[in-house]
């Protein structure tokens, strides 16, 4: 009933009811606006990173002669230069690059799943959802390795001055956590854990949602429903996670 009134009256605004002015379902719109608010949260973290970094000394020597010190903010590519199975080689940002590649590829398989859903092709949706889940799990595994390496630290310790029992002592520090950091000022480690951790948790939730979608596809829920819009909505979320990584990659690792 409501559908016919809005279209029948010519010259009436699309906002007068009975139609979807934004040309998208309620669920899809809400996903878009949730993602917008989530973008603000991530931006908040990265903006604070810039703010805190600006209140610390910058390293102004030659990058090739860079050494870890709590006196100045580290050059990120000097911190993230380890790759699994290649111990002792300096390969700046290579592993992060591999992680970026994995996430972009899983975004592609997701968009192919959405495309297959539009065609009601259940077998193809199953196939591409499964690849997307595998991509997500691979990314999380890479992140687990990277965190472990960051926490354990390098072969050689950094000498850090600390105020203990009323006097200054120098101690050897390996790795980083929320209380100690061999790579630079303490907030650098804290931001690493908060920013990549918050993103990693989004990836983890995304993998769970993707699995739910995969399960519902296999059991034929969407086929009976007559459309695969849920794949589209979760797809939006998954692409957003990829998008955030693009920004984290640039603003945390690259510059």
């Amino acid at each position: 009933m409501a559908h016919s009134t809005a279209t029948a009256v010519t010259g009436k605004s699309v906002w007068d009811g009975g139609t979807s002015p934004m040309g998208a379902s309620y669920g899809k719109l809400m996903m878009w606006f949730f993602l917008l608010s989530d973008a603000f949260t991530f931006s908040g973290l990265l903006i604070t990173y810039g703010l805190v970094r600006s209140s610390h000394q910058a390293y102004d020597g030659l990058v090739s002669a860079f050494k870890f010190s709590t006196e100045y903010w580290p050059v990120p590519e000097k911190v993230f230069e380890a790759v699994p199975f290649l111990h002792g080689y300096e390969l700046p940002l290579v592993f992060v690059g591999i992680m970026t590649f994995i996430l972009i590829m899983s975004s592609v398989t997701m968009v192919l799943a959405v495309e297959a859903g539009h065609r009601m092709d259940r077998k193809a949706v199953e196939k591409w959802m499964l690849w997307t889940i595998i991509g997500g799990i691979t990314f999380l595994s890479c992140q687990a390795w990277e965190w472990t390496h960051f926490i354990v630290g390098t072969d050689a310790p950094t000498l850090v001055k600390d105020f203990v029992n009323g006097q200054w002592i120098t101690k050897e520090v390996y790795g980083a956590n929320l209380h100690i950091n061999q790579y630079g000022p303490q907030p650098f480690a804290d931001f690493f854990f908060f920013i990549t951790g918050f993103h990693g948790f989004h990836v983890f939730s995304g993998v769970l949602l993707n699995f739910l979608i995969y399960y519902n596809t296999v059991t034929g829920v969407y086929e009976r429903r007559g459309h695969y819009e849920m794949v589209e909505k979760v797809g939006l979320y998954w692409h957003f996670v990829d998008l955030v990584w693009v920004f984290v990659f640039t603003f945390f690792y690259l510059v």
Partner: peptide
Amino acid sequence: WSILIPTIFIVWMLVAFVYEGIK
């Protein structure tokens, strides 16, 4: 535009602050 306009402002702020941070 509902998505893009707020995004432009927040990315502007992000670039500005990180730029300050790099010194």
